[in-house]
């Protein structure tokens, strides 16, 4: 699997995800600076977490228009897998690669803790390492994770099995009490129409090594490597 991680000024999870990818592929992904305008032939592009451009104007708004994003969009159109984590998810919505928007958390606080997620679908290269309905523990760290889209858009995401993850309780129930940020319908991650782009607020790369206290994020990277090698 040939992977690249896009690095923006203010990215801070780029190295974490590079380590997680190296664990499953045996070699380090390419690190691509946001000012570059071309990408090599790739199987996977990761848009990592962080605070690109200091979250100026809106989270992800500036990065979505940085020079490299035209190449990312062009590769995504060809079916290259794109994974946006946290700020990466915000960037992908601002770039129009995924529907909706990540608004300020309903409680206004920055939230940094583990949450429980229900895997809603295993039908994607990102989620094939999980069983649909499985509950996993993954950390979140965001101030703007409150997923919003019009009801018709949400209905369509659900009808097309494109909700990848929902915030849930230990039994997998997507209760309001289990929703950390006010996201519509407890949505934590979504797929695009062709199931080749995933955006998610939680950080699988932060729990992909036993030394970090858990490995629930590891199946995502293993599944990607298996599907794309």
């Amino acid at each position: 699997m040939k992977a690249a991680v896009i690095v923006f000024p203010g990215s801070n999870c780029d190295r974490d995800v590079a380590v997680a990818l190296k664990r499953v592929t045996g070699h380090a992904p390419r690190m691509i600076w946001h000012r570059d305008t071309a990408l090599p032939a790739l199987d996977l592009i990761v848009v990592p977490g962080g605070f690109s451009y200091g979250d100026y104007l809106r989270s992800g708004a500036m990065a979505a228009h940085s020079p490299i994003m035209a190449a990312v969009t062009a590769q995504a159109a060809k079916g290259v897998r794109v994974l946006g984590i946290c700020n990466g998810f915000q960037i992908l919505t601002e770039a129009g690669l995924l529907p909706g928007v990540l608004m300020r958390n309903q409680g206004l606080s920055f939230i940094c803790r583990d949450v429980l997620l229900k895997v809603e679908t295993s039908a994607s290269d990102f989620t094939a390492g999980y069983n649909a309905g499985q509950v996993v523990r993954i950390p979140v760290a965001h101030g703007d994770g409150n997923y919003f889209a019009e009801p018709a858009v949400l209905d369509r995401l659900e009808d097309e099995d494109r909700v990848a993850f929902r915030y849930c309780d230990e039994g997998g129930a997507p209760l309001e009490a289990a929703n950390p940020n006010g996201s519509r319908r407890n949505i934590a991650g979504i797929l695009n129409e062709t199931r080749t782009v995933l955006g998610m607020m939680p950080h699988p790369e932060r729990l992909a090594d036993p030394l970090l206290g858990g490995t629930d994020g590891a199946p995502m990277f293993r599944a990607l490597a298996a599907a794309l090698s």
């Binding site: 228009h65 928007v101 919003f148």
Partner: peptide, 9 residues
């Protein structure tokens, strides 16, 4: 349309 506002919200 392109930058200053996000017309979704």
């Amino acid at each position: 349309r392109k930058l200053l506002a996000n017309t979704v919200i």
